[in-house]
């Protein structure tokens, strides 16, 4: 089974219990304005170019069959239109200035990488976490990874925005110990405006997981000037209260790591704000736990 993976991050300590390896799958149905993994949106491999690393050797221009890289006056130009992401330029670039985000890998290859930390998982109760993009967007591949992980007796987590086919969610629940389920906006209008899709399907999937007695942690990005409003904070609290499968709520303050990645993809970041104040988040945590009766913390 083949899928497109854009990163495999080992020694991840904040994406589930114990020591974990996070596998990032490419492709996402949402278009959140504050996206912190912009290279995870497109399903296909993409060229990333970092001018800071370029030593202007010209090798990429020579390698590119479509002439997307060019040099003028010692400066490197790269035109994205017409580029099919074949990666020949990245292969020759000595300095790592041109790279490909997204690699076609089969299940065994991913699992081989994941299992390099097998003994650390056993010692710590850790395992594999699927993330993205939206990991369930490549549904079949995600399921095959989860099944393989379970065959290897390691714990599994899925970080999902919840926007996926019901069958995929249902099947994934069989092989997933913990879901980290995003809750980004309250109400279809707000959700559509901030994330590009409505919330209906997401909430249906959350109900579905509750029906299956899955273990769910609600993950809520808090973005200043976007969803940092009282109605949404209440929305988080009531959702946490009403859905029985939610064990805990994590507030995730916005961070700026996505901006430089967007630049390397030749995109302007749609949102360029500051992380919210700690004190305010703590206040939210208090209110959410109070209203929902469930633990809430800042992650």
């Amino acid at each position: 089974m083949l899928g497109t993976v854009f990163n495999i991050q080992r020694f991840s300590l904040f994406d589930g219990p114990g020591v974990r390896t996070v596998v990032f799958l490419k492709g996402c149905p949402l278009r959140c304005v504050w996206c912190h993994n912009p290279e995870g949106i497109d399903r296909n491999p993409q060229i990333m170019y970092d001018p800071k690393c370029c030593i202007a050797c010209g090798d990429c221009a020579e390698a590119c069959l479509k002439h997307r890289h060019f040099f003028a006056g010692g400066l490197h130009g790269y035109v994205r239109e017409g580029c099919d992401g074949c990666g020949k330029c990245a292969k020759v670039c000595p300095a790592g200035a041109v790279t490909v985000s997204g690699q076609l890998m089969d299940t065994d290859a991913v699992m081989a990488e994941v299992m390099k930390d097998g003994s650390a998982y056993r010692m710590s109760g850790g395992g594999m976490t699927l993330s993205g993009g939206e990991p369930l967007y490549q549904g079949e591949f995600a399921l095959s990874l989860l099944k393989s992980a379970k065959e290897r007796k390691i714990t599994t987590c899925v970080e999902t925005c919840g926007y996926a086919k019901a069958e995929t969610v249902k099947e994934a629940a069989k092989y997933t110990d913990d879901f980290y389920f995003d809750y980004k906006a309250t109400g279809n209008g707000m959700h559509k405006r901030l994330c590009g899709v409505t919330q209906t399907l997401i909430l249906e999937n959350l109900s579905l997981l509750c029906g299956l007695c899955a273990r769910v942690t609600l993950r809520c990005p808090i973005v200043d000037g976007m969803n940092d409003i009282p109605e949404h904070i209440e929305g988080i609290a009531y959702t946490a209260r009403d859905y029985s499968c939610i064990k805990e709520v994590h507030l995730e303050p916005y961070h700026r790591l996505g901006i430089s990645k967007a630049e390397k993809l030749g995109q302007a970041a749609a949102y360029d704000g500051r992380p919210p104040e700690r004190g305010r988040l703590e206040e939210y945590c208090g209110r959410i736990s109070e209203l929902s009766g469930k633990p809430c913390r800042i992650s």
Binding site: F11, L13, F14, P17, G18, V19, S119, A120, M123, S124, G125, G126
Partner: peptide
């Protein structure tokens, strides 16, 4: 919680 994971990582290194 993270300390536990670090302890496990270190112990794992020590045993492998």
């Amino acid at each position: 919680d993270i300390r536990k994971s670090i302890a496990a990582t270190v112990k794992n290194y020590m045993l492998t």
